[in-house]
């Protein structure tokens, strides 16, 4: 609990600013603790989950969502660049250096978009994308991890773009510009793992009226897939609209 140094910053926001993950559960915990100290007659508080992070609604929530995706990818590729497997070829290392750079640009830019002042912590200090379930010590493991992440993020963006409002056209266009670079990443990593496996039927609809279109995933689906990596934190997209 004491790790949550973001709470004071959050409290400083006077207007319910759009910046922060809603930390009502954690706030409720703090309040409950104070109340418990004051009086034993306080109604039994519902056990709040300090690890529950709920994305804000609307465009701010979507920016946060994109920020989390960039954190996932940047963390992974930074590790690959820092400690590349010995069997990863020089050409492949150059590609991963690019992937790392792109994702750093996204992560830092989205952080700026969420909080231009840079004065606030956007996430709990102990929040991290955990790499333990990846095998980043072999080429095969690195490519498998990258493919899993890139397919997920490529599938996330068209659904995200459908939900972004036109209230800030530049911001929406920026996300649109990023979406195809993610699609390029996905195809690139596919082709490294299995040449010619770009845009195959696993990632592109093959039948019906959507044939030839990318298979997409909703924020809830994407966050469910990433849940083991963000544990113990649980990220909820309940406030985001559902793509139709």
């Amino acid at each position: 609990m004491s790790d949550h140094s973001y709470l004071p910053a959050w409290r400083e926001q006077s207007l319910g600013r759009r910046l922060f993950l809603r930390v009502s559960a954690a706030s409720a915990a703090s309040v409950a603790l104070v109340a418990a100290g004051c009086s034993s007659s306080t109604p039994e508080p519902v056990a709040p989950d300090p690890f529950q992070l709920t994305l804000p609604s609307g465009d701010p929530g979507l920016l946060y969502y994109a920020y989390l995706l960039a954190i996932a990818q940047a963390t992974t590729y930074q590790k690959v660049v820092d400690a590349p497997p010995t069997d990863l070829t020089p050409a492949e290392r150059a590609i991963f250096a690019d992937l790392r750079d792109h994702e750093i640009v996204y992560r830092e830019m989205l952080k700026y978009a969420i909080d231009p002042t840079g004065a606030n912590a956007l996430l709990p200090t102990d929040f991290a994308f955990k790499l333990t379930s990846f095998t980043l010590t072999t080429r095969a493991g690195v490519l498998a991890a990258a493919q899993q992440l890139e397919d997920l993020v490529a599938a996330a963006y068209p659904a995200l773009l459908q939900l972004v409002t036109s209230s800030n056209p530049q911001q929406r266009t920026l996300l649109l510009k990023m979406s195809t670079v993610h699609a390029r990443h996905a195809a690139t990593v596919h082709d490294l793992l299995v040449p010619g496996s770009f845009a195959n039927n696993d990632i592109v609809e093959s039948t019906g009226t959507l044939a030839g279109q990318l298979r997409t995933k909703t924020p809830t689906e994407v966050l469910a897939a990433l849940a083991p990596f963000f544990a113990p934190f649980v990220i909820s997209a309940a406030n985001l609209a559902t793509p139709i």
Binding site: P158, T180, V181, A183, H185, T188, G212, Q213, L214
Partner: peptide, 24 residues
């Protein structure tokens, strides 16, 4: 037309995968 926009956004991504492959 939200359905048309949805399709266009999905095709947009497939075109990018095509380009990446040809570049490979």
């Amino acid at each position: 037309d939200s359905q048309l926009l949805k399709a266009v956004l999905r095709i947009h991504a497939v075109e990018a995968q095509h380009s990446a492959h040809v570049r490979s």
